[in-house]
Design a protein around this nucleic acid. Structure first.
Lengths: 245, 245
DNA sequence: TGCTTTTGTTGCATGTTGTTACAAAGGCTA
DNA sequence: TAGCCTTTGTAACAACATGCAACAAAAGCA
């Protein structure tokens, strides 16, 4: 049920941003990284479910990084590389990659492969999916990942349903980015599985309404979840990630 | 460790023979198969570590076969197909394949991917196995993996019934993995066998309720056995792993 | 047999989620 | 600005899923 967390590792800022954006749009929590140090920091401090790893990282080599990670970690790794020759691919598999995708790639295919790898990880490994839930703060509010509840600034407690919690997480993972209803629905279903049979109608609107009624100071004029007419909704607040638990 | 056993599934005899030969030359045990019936027979009678599955199999569809296998099996599957368009690949990943290789392919690359998939399967499954033979402690309780026994904390008043103990063991053996009611029922009946008289309704729910009332600190907000709405239950504690044996 | 404990069944209260209908708000054009 | 259409908010409802108490059936035992 937790939203998968991906690490997007690329030394080219533009590519990194592009990939991060794209994965976020598709319902994942995507964290950018550029060096092995970054990766290790993330892995040690947060749960990471999958790493998208560029092969050529300036000074560092993705291959080396993968090899070194594999000594201690079984986190799934997908290589993304401009080097498409077979011997490069083979090298990737050899050092323990789960997949190897050559640039330029079809983003939807990347998505399919990411999902496939995650699904298998979920099936086979309990470790990878161990939940260490983070907490978020946003303008006085605290989302307590452990209790799965949201505390208002004055300490008043609201409990969110699963779907509402999911929605809040989607927003927290995408602050300031306008999300269409479809994107939100997709994001919610990344966890919940199954068909893409998206949905009759207004479920998302109603869900947003319910979330607002619980977390907004004045649900009549929402400050946190803003409506972007003709587009969808934005979570319009600065989010801080804390380790409270 | 044992030599990996592959199932080579292709309806074209020549291709089948070629692939089988090649894999054998590279140290695997390769078994040819042409239909879903063949596959099932092999899987039921012998250990199979990986399936190389052609997508177009005369009357049958590799996609359908994969989908149907995935309902009961986790055996790794690699598609081999002349259909190289992205939407075909995506379909393959969607139904649970581990990899998708387009014909014509470089045999060495195929080899690398087979090895990678096997390696991962070994990594993850051995880990899952290790977890199960360990012993756990959780808030005073001890689960002895070797004896498959549960011991209550010292001075513990209530005793668990046989069925409750069984349920607790099922949870302990699968920490952090959401279990459906059906899975739980099956696991419980592994001892008690027999007819398909599966489960009229809510027995599992009630059983879970009873277990909670005995082992949870505050049964009203369960910490150990969590409900995963629409799915089932998870044993969601961070257990300490001790090597008691 | 009669008593006790365990286990399954059922019905009800409660909570969650999607659907629908309608009202309100926003935006456009004449 | 009025008129019209689209988009959004939300209440009411329906369909479920879940927790639980109360009862019934089964099993164990003296």
């Amino acid at each position: 049920m937790a939203i998968p967390r991906l690490l997007v590792v690329d030394d080219d800022p533009e590519m990194r941003a592009m990939l991060t954006q794209f994965m976020r749009k598709n319902g994942f929590i995507a964290l950018p990284a550029a060096t092995e140090a970054d990766i290790r920091k993330q892995i040690n401090s947060e749960r990471v479910d999958l790493i998208l790893l560029d092969v050529m990282l300036g000074d560092e080599s993705g291959i080396d990084i993968c090899q070194s990670l594999r000594k201690e970690q079984e986190v799934p790794i997908i290589f993304i590389s401009a080097l498409s020759a077979d011997h490069h691919r083979m090298k990737g598999y050899e050092v323990g990659a789960d997949d190897y995708i050559a640039k330029p790639f079809n983003p939807d295919l990347l998505l399919a492969r990411v999902k496939a790898v995650l699904q298998r990880a979920r099936r086979t490994s309990s470790l990878a999916y161990r939940r260490r839930t983070k907490s978020f703060r946003f303008s006085g509010w605290v989302y307590d990942g452990k209790q799965n509840e949201v505390r208002a600034p004055d300490g008043y407690q609201v409990s969110l349903s699963q779907r509402e919690t999911g929605l809040l997480k989607v927003f927290l993972a995408n602050p300031h980015i306008p999300l269409t209803r479809e994107e939100i629905a997709t994001a919610l279903d990344v966890t919940g599985e199954s068909d893409g049979a998206e949905a009759s109608g207004r479920a998302i609107d109603v869900l947003v309404g319910r979330l607002r009624s619980k977390i907004e100071n004045d649900p009549k004029s929402p400050q946190l979840v803003r409506t972007e007419r003709g587009v969808g909704y934005v979570f319009a607040t600065d989010v801080e990630v804390n380790d409270i638990g």
